[in-house]
Write a protein that binds this DNA or RNA. Structure first.
Lengths: 173, 173
DNA sequence: TCCTTGACTATCCACAGTGGACAGTGTACC
DNA sequence: GGTACACTGTCCACTGTGGATAGTCAAGGA
């Protein structure tokens, strides 16, 4: 949130939440509940300060010098380990009891979703290059594309890995 | 948890938590706190039932027919969307204010960690093939390998994407 | 045989993250 | 002037995280 505030300037909680979706939504999540709770904490710590209340009692928060220092310190400390949480892998891992036809349906839907995402990342990167052309931003999207490429490759390998799912010729087809 | 119980049979909470680490730890997390809380819920729902209390007041839980039905229903419903949460991408995204030398250190550490993980997945898959040879299990590990390959490829592209980080010749080197 | 040590098992707590409901308040448009 | 809708903030119940704690058993040494 400090990083976001430092880039987009004074913003109210709702707008901050929307900005988070756009700017880091591809690799991080930030719900509104969380934004408001955290803004309160950050204000108590002196990392952000609020301007006067505006329409609908909204307050625009901006990052303070103290907050900027905290942000830099946090960046310097380096990232935590990531946790990949892939529900589809649970379905696969415990999927021996699932009807092959249903498993194929699930994988097809999964494939479609990720194909779309992959194309989206491609367009997004092109857009970014032709507008702000911020290398840091582009680097994150590039990761998204490579991730989706890995997903696509995995899907191509699956029929070979799971012959019982893909070779079955059931009456239901 | 129902999936785990159906595969490993009657287990107490602690052992279930350890099994989760081994069996699905590469793509899901399950803390002990969570296991005990959830076991309680599952017992209330009639999805698991506990045997008599053993040593250290431990109880071995096993899945009931009702639980097995719930598991199958859950599998059939299909997986939720995944959320990738990559702290390293936050560091990159807001990393313009970070000293290039420090950024390179961070990326080097990240690279080492993932190189190790990639090798680990390779060995794990070989192990699996030579022991249980369960295709569903192997399919999940294969995803891990492809994910790590994507990470590696991204790291190779980064110097080109972030010239300001990698081309700087600072006195500190 | 008794004691010590360490592992095992369960519980608890504070906090972060999630997703949705809700209510008050502007604004734009009819 | 009125109405519908979007905006903003608040709240709640639940899930997930990480670490602390305490009781209990087992193994091995004195």
């Amino acid at each position: 949130m400090l990083g976001l505030l430092s880039q987009i300037g004074p913003t109210n909680g709702n707008a901050l939440s929307r900005s988070a979706d756009v700017l880091i939504g591809d690799f991080w999540t930030l719900t509104r509940s969380q934004v408001y709770r955290e803004l309160q904490t950050l204000e108590d710590l002196g990392y952000v300060k609020a301007g006067p209340a505006g329409a609908r009692s909204s307050r625009d928060f901006s990052i303070t010098d103290k907050g900027a220092a905290a942000l830099k310190e946090w960046l310097t400390a380096g990232p935590a380990d990531e946790v990949i949480r892939m529900p589809i892998l649970l379905t696969i891992r415990f999927g021996a009891g699932l009807a092959p036809a249903r498993m194929r349906e699930i994988l097809t839907a999964f494939s479609r979703r990720h194909q779309a995402k992959r194309e989206f990342y491609g367009e997004l990167e092109a857009d970014m290059r032709s507008t702000r052309n911020d290398p840091y931003e582009i680097a994150t999207v590039r990761f998204g594309r490579l991730f989706e490429a890995a997903v696509a490759e995995w899907l191509l390998e699956l029929p070979e890995l799971l012959p019982t799912v893909f070779n079955e010729r059931s009456a239901e087809e």
